[in-house]
Design a protein around this nucleic acid. Structure first.
Lengths: 333, 333
DNA sequence: CTGAAAGCGCTTACAG
DNA sequence: CTGAAAGCGCTTACAG
């Protein structure tokens, strides 16, 4: 049973395709009541549904945006996606989400695919591997927005956490709680990913502001699978830190795993604060003190902004949009 | 700067659109080497990328499938999605994921949207609210596959856990560990959602097989926000259960929250087993004994199957495909 | 070995 | 108040 087309509807209702199209697009201006009725009936009888492909081809708009996250395993990503979808749903915009898995090749594949599908705009958590591609999009004035990570020398609206301040909140709280040997551990720094770099930077600055000199051995930027080893090193030091600051949720998981395996007790053996308010922060023993990202606002603002760009409702120069973190005090520090 | 079309490429390369199209589709059979070269150069010079909309309109295939999950908050959903995406990526099929949020209206909206976008097939975790729509798709022979939930009287391939056996594994293990007062708590049953119903059924059968009569007061099917109250009731009983079986991850979270708030100790106050191997099962204190769903296999098989249906590589009658659970023993029981 | 022509299912400016 | 015609950017069967 082939699906009905607009032509079928037109024939059954004894009108032209044009008229059916007008009807579907609610341009009733001069349409006769009986005509409307006939079309409506024909549509119902045939179970007609319009073909967006054809419509988009003609209109040169798909009412669809693409989202490419660097790594969907971060709870931050899933929350941002949720916010984007909610906002877009309200505006009747569809969204296609892709996960680059921290792989620039995959990212490029998805960007090409989404553009071939003619999405109206793109929200990306950029890996650092496709700067030329981003640049090309900017040159073409293709609507583009970044989340979480900046790309140097590129004029693109970027929505992300005030990372330095987020680190400062954690460090300040550690110090207020009496700690001075404070370590920091986060994901690998080899790719110069904005949040990692800025969070370490903020952590160092905050320590210095308290007159504490950062200790190189207390600071680790490692791949997930190397973290265990890094922790072993840290806790084998003569004066190991009494407090640990983790830069994101995946790092936190590794730290908790390590703690468990080594029968260490938080906060007795070391105090702990992490960026990213993980789902089990409240049920873990001890409950976890975290620095929460306003993922929802970030996603919402970024998508609002992109949609405005697409509609040419806005003409400001691209800039960095920073969002404030929130310290949620529980019992791990 | 407008994007180049196939026509632009053809003109620049001094060939016809047909030839460019052949080139792009690798039908080189009789194409002259110099022609190829010229086309290739023109493509590079213009930065040409083909328009899938136009291609799909003509070919009547989009090489895209849709996935609609009932509720993305379940870890099971995200794992299945991941498996689907991996499988489809390999076959160069795109996937669009939508979250119905357990809302049949949203589900219908997404189904309509995806079909308007002309997806080649659909994988859905069906809510119970759109049976007519499913039926219509079946009648139209639209490629469709269900995951996690059956729909009565509908001939659709359905991929899901062997729920009764999953419950049996938990109950057997409780009993082996010396428990006989075993409670079960899971999500609301008002919508007759397959896994919930079958897991309770399996739990009752397993108890009976051990000569234990199920106790009504020990069994709860509740909305997430009601679970706390349900637990209060259970633990106020004269003879409260000594073991609790939770039907899924979201229920588990509520139980752990309750445990925390009431300063109860697992497994001293009650032993615990849950379906769904949550990410923190290994780091929670105590580590959590779970019954894991083979989410990856389920997603992979379902998508393989759907793609075969789309390609008409398969012609079997629709059936129920069951997958075995796996008991992962840790220390909560 | 390559091109002209028809057509996929729509929308839209224009004519009447 | 409605319709004929052109066109969006491709693919494909066919001709030469």
């Amino acid at each position: 049973m082939k699906r009905a087309t607009m032509n079928d509807v037109a024939q059954l209702a004894n009108v032209s395709k044009s008229t059916v199209s007008q009807y579907l697009n609610r341009r009733y201006d001069y349409m006769g009541e009986k005509t409307k009725k006939r079309i409506e009936e024909a549509i119902n009888e045939l179970g007609y549904q319009s073909n967006y492909l054809a419509r988009s081809l003609k209109q040169k708009r798909t009412f669809t945006i693409g989202v490419i996250v660097a790594n969907i395993l971060h709870s931050f990503s899933t929350r941002v996606i949720r916010a984007i979808e909610d906002e877009c749903n309200e505006q009747d915009i569809h969204v296609i989400v892709c996960n680059a898995d921290d792989d620039p090749i995959k990212e490029k594949k998805y960007i090409d695919m989404l553009r071939a599908k003619q999405v109206d705009g793109l929200i990306v958590f950029p890996t650092d591997g496709n700067v030329d591609l981003y640049k090309k999009m900017v040159d073409e004035e293709f609507p583009l927005v970044f989340i979480d990570r900046k790309v140097e020398d590129l004029q693109v609206d970027t929505f992300l956490l005030d990372n330095e301040n987020a680190s400062k909140m954690a460090v300040d709280y550690f110090i207020k709680s009496g700690h001075s040997r404070i370590g920091m551990i986060t994901s690998s720094l080899i790719h110069n990913v904005t949040p990692r770099v800025e969070r370490i930077e903020g952590y160092k600055k905050a320590l210095k502001a308290h007159g504490i000199q950062p200790v190189k051995e207390y600071i680790k930027g490692l791949e997930v699978h190397e973290i265990k080893k890094g922790l072993e090193e840290i806790f084998s030091l003569e004066d190991p830190p009494t407090a640990l600051f983790t830069g994101n949720d995946l790092t936190l998981m590794e730290v908790l795993n390590f703690t468990k395996e080594n029968n260490m007790k938080i906060p007795d053996d070391f105090a702990l604060i992490s960026i990213d308010d993980v789902s089990f922060a409240n049920i873990y023993d001890p409950t976890l003190t975290t620095v929460a990202q306003p993922a929802f606002s970030i996603g919402k603002e970024a998508s609002k902004f992109l949609l405005q760009r697409i509609n040419k409702d806005i003409n400001t120069d691209p800039k960095i949009h920073r969002f404030k973190a929130e310290l949620i005090v529980r019992t791990s520090c």
